[in-house]
Amino acid sequence: MTTFVLRRLAAGIFLLLVISFLTFALLSVPHTDVGRALLGQNASQAAVDARNASLGLDRPMLAQYADWLSHAVRGDLGRSWFTGEDVWSALATRLPVTLSIVVGVTLVTAVLSLLLGVWAAVRGGVVDRLVQVLSVIGYALPGFLVTLVLVLVFAVQLRWFPAIGYIPFTQSPSGWLSTVTLPIAALSVGAVAGVAQQVRGSVADVLERDFVRTLRARGLPPGRILFRHVVRNASAPALTVLGLQFVGLLGGAVLVEQIFGLPGIGSMTVQYTTRGDIPVIMGLVMVSVVGVVVVNLVVDVLVGVPNPKARVA
């Protein structure tokens, strides 16, 4: 298992380097005059050139990337070109907001998908068809439409939850819960629909295997067979899809944060990307890639623990 984890970590570090280089290369393509954006349209060309030179933009792209990477490996992501704020400080204030949403959606998705998928696979018949129909509907509904309906019904009309804003957990746990409930619900609809179908298919497939018939013939309780043997053997595909959902939520949070006015990394990405603020954008990309690597590593370990064959890949 140690070798397996080390291989995955090495692959994650390689992915981090490749993504950071490609992102930096794309951002370095001339699409906006940063010096002009900082100094204004009335600034002289000499002043603009001097400002770009002070930011290192007059150097070759590879030299700029090497300089950024040398600082990044020491934990220094630089400062925003436009606000002067330390990138780590900016991320530290916004990352908890997005993590509150993404982790909440993942937990809700895991619980509801497991319940619905196992229920559909075990009961079959009308229950199975009902769960499949609901899953297709939930997966097909546009995310922005679900979000707007939730806001109109539960925030505007019923006034059960605030329509916009965010309250930190440290400030008020109940206030925090009220501000993240609707965003979590909005993103959970499609996520539950996708993972529930995978759980249902995996559990139904395992129920047809010979070892399950053998366990039944030995007289083991149905509940023990289901949760100790069937769900365990069916967990690998479901965990993989759940991990992919987590990664996708990092991007899906952009729309939800914009609608609910949440100060997370999604809205931060939109704001700083339009400015061309490379230090902040690189920080955002690195945080996202590290999140992807960590989630994939956790999923691989969870899949590899009960299934030694998975560690060979």
Rank of each mutant, 00 (worst) to 15 (best):
F4L: 09
V5I: 15
V5C: 10
R8I: 13
L9M: 14
A11W: 06
G12E: 13
L15P: 00
L16P: 10
V18S: 04
V18H: 03
I19K: 01
I19F: 12
A25W: 05
A25P: 04
V29D: 07
T32L: 15
T32A: 15
A37L: 13
A37R: 12
L39V: 05
Q45A: 05
Q45S: 05
A46G: 06
A50E: 11
A53R: 01
S54T: 09
G56M: 03
L57H: 02
L57N: 09
R59C: 04
M61A: 15
L62M: 12
A63D: 12
Q64I: 03
Y65C: 01
H71D: 03
V73T: 06
L77Q: 08
R79S: 05
W81A: 06
F82D: 13
W88C: 02
W88E: 13
A90E: 15
L91E: 14
R94S: 13
P96Y: 11
L99I: 13
S100H: 11
V102S: 11
V102N: 12
V103M: 07
V103R: 03
T106N: 02
T109D: 06
A110H: 04
V111Q: 02
S113H: 11
A121V: 05
V122T: 11
V122C: 04
G125L: 06
L130K: 11
L130E: 08
V136P: 03
A140Y: 15
P142M: 05
V146Q: 10
V149G: 01
V151D: 02
F154Q: 01
V156F: 03
Q157I: 00
R159F: 10
F161E: 02
A163S: 12
Y166F: 14
P168F: 09
F169E: 15
L177N: 02
L177F: 12
V180I: 14
V180Y: 00
T181L: 06
A186W: 03
A186T: 09
S188C: 08
G190E: 01
A193C: 04
G194W: 07
V199F: 15
R200Y: 15
V203I: 14
A204Y: 10
A204G: 09
D210Y: 10
T214H: 13
L215V: 05
R218E: 12
G219F: 09
P221V: 05
G223I: 08
R224A: 13
F227I: 14
H229G: 03
H229W: 12
R232G: 08
N233W: 05
A234F: 15
A234H: 09
A234N: 05
S235K: 10
A236R: 00
A236H: 01
P237I: 10
P237R: 04
A238V: 07
L242V: 00
L242P: 12
Q245Y: 00
L250A: 07
V254G: 04
L255D: 08
Q258L: 08
I259G: 06
F260H: 14
G264P: 11
I265H: 07
S267C: 07
M268L: 08
Y272S: 07
T273C: 11
D277Y: 01
I281H: 07
M282L: 12
M282N: 05
L284S: 09
V287P: 04
S288E: 03
V289W: 07
V290Y: 00
V290M: 08
V293R: 14
V295K: 02
L297M: 11
L302A: 14
V305T: 06
K309R: 12
V312M: 07
